[in-house]
C-alpha cells in the first residue's frame, strides 16, 4: 500500500501499471496481432504480394515509357513504392482496432488490469514490425530486379527510421478512422477512397514536372512526395535535408491533430 494516495479524476487513467509492465503487455498484444497473420495468410498477401505486384507492373509496363528504361525507372520508383506501401500498411492499425471494438474484444481488454495505453501501443508495435518486413521485402525484390543502393548503409538505416517515424505519426489517422468507422468494411473503404488518391497524386510513379501546374502545387506539398524524395536521397543519392525536414514537420503536424482526436473518439466510443 502506498502512503500517499493520489486522487485521480478519471478512473480510466488510474496509473497503477508501471511502464515496464505496460511495455510487456503491449508486446504481448503485438504478439497476438502477429500470430493472427499465421491464421490469415491473405493478410500477408496484402502487405507482401500487393507491393511486389506494384513494383513489377509499374517497372515493366510503364517504366520504359516514363523513364526510357526499366532499370532507370526502378531506381526512381522503388523508394516511392516503399513509402506508398507504408501508408497502406498503416491502415491495419485502424482495421484491427475497429474489429476489436465491434467484436467486444476491446471491452474485454478494458476489464483486464492493463496499462490503458497498452492495447493501442500493442497494435502500433505490431504495425511497425509489418512495416519493417515490407521495407525489407521490397528492397529484396528491388535488388533482384537490379535496384542498386547508391548511398551508404547509414542512408538505408536513416530511410527506415524516417519511414517508421512517419508511420508512427500516420497511425493516429488510422486509429481515428478505426474508432469512427462503424465496421471494418468502412475502414477498408477509407483506405481505398482517401488514401489511394493521396498516394497516387504524388511523385511516387512519375516526376512532378509532367503534371499540370495546378496539380503540381498539391503534389509538391504532399507528404508522400516529400517522403519519397527523402527516401530517394537516402537510398540512391540526392538532396535529403529539405524533404526529410518537410516529412518530419508533417509527422509532427499529423500527430498534433490526430492524436488528441483519436483519444477523444476512443473515449466517446467505449
Amino acid at each position: 500500500m502506498t502512503a500517499v494516495t493520489a486522487t485521480p479524476s478519471d478512473p480510466a487513467v488510474t496509473p497503477r501499471v508501471g511502464p515496464i509492465e505496460g511495455l510487456r503487455q503491449s508486446l504481448t498484444l503485438a504478439w497476438r496481432t502477429l500470430v493472427q497473420i499465421r491464421h490469415n495468410p491473405w493478410e500477408l498477401g496484402d502487405f507482401s504480394f500487393q507491393p511486389i505486384m506494384f513494383v513489377l507492373l509499374f517497372t515493366y509496363v510503364f517504366g520504359g515509357a516514363i523513364s526510357g528504361s526499366t532499370g532507370e525507372y526502378l531506381t526512381f520508383a522503388l523508394p516511392g513504392i516503399i513509402v506508398m506501401n507504408m501508408v497502406f500498411v498503416t491502415m491495419y492499425v485502424g482495421l484491427g482496432l475497429n474489429t476489436d471494438l465491434t467484436k467486444g474484444v476491446f471491452d474485454r481488454l478494458r476489464s483486464l488490469p492493463l496499462a490503458r495505453w497498452a492495447p493501442l501501443a500493442g497494435r502500433i508495435t505490431a504495425d511497425l514490425v509489418k512495416q519493417a518486413w515490407s521495407v525489407a521485402l521490397l528492397l529484396g525484390v528491388g535488388a533482384l530486379l537490379g535496384f542498386r543502393l547508391g548511398a551508404s548503409v547509414v542512408g538505408l538505416i536513416g530511410m527506415v527510421v524516417l519511414l517508421l517515424v512517419f508511420a508512427l505519426a500516420f497511425s493516429w489517422v488510422s486509429v481515428l478512422v478505426g474508432v469512427l468507422a462503424k465496421d471494418p468494411e468502412q475502414v477498408q473503404l477509407f483506405g481505398f477512397t482517401a488514401l489511394f488518391p493521396v498516394t497516387f497524386v504524388s511523385n511516387v510513379f512519375v516526376p512532378t514536372q509532367t503534371m499540370p501546374g495546378w496539380l503540381q502545387a498539391f503534389v509538391e506539398i504532399n507528404p508522400v512526395t516529400l517522403l519519397s524524395d527523402a527516401a530517394r536521397g537516402l537510398l540512391v543519392g540526392g538532396p535529403v535535408a529539405g524533404p526529410a525536414i518537410g516529412s518530419l514537420l508533417w509527422a509532427a503536424g499529423i500527430t498534433a491533430v490526430f492524436a488528441p482526436l483519436s483519444v477523444w473518439g476512443l473515449k466517446r466510443r467505449v
Binding site: 494516495t5 488510474t14 500470430v35 491464421h39 467486444g104 474484444v105 471491452d107 476489464s111 488490469p113
Partner: peptide
C-alpha cells in the same frame, strides 16, 4: 472510481457477445 486497477485484477467479465478474438 479510485481503485479501478485493483478491481480489474479481481474480476472476470463475459460480455453480451462472445468477446474472443475470432482470428486466433
Amino acid at each position: 472510481t479510485t481503485d479501478g486497477h485493483e478491481v480489474r485484477s479481481r474480476i472476470g467479465l463475459t460480455g453480451q457477445f462472445a468477446s474472443v478474438d475470432e482470428q486466433l
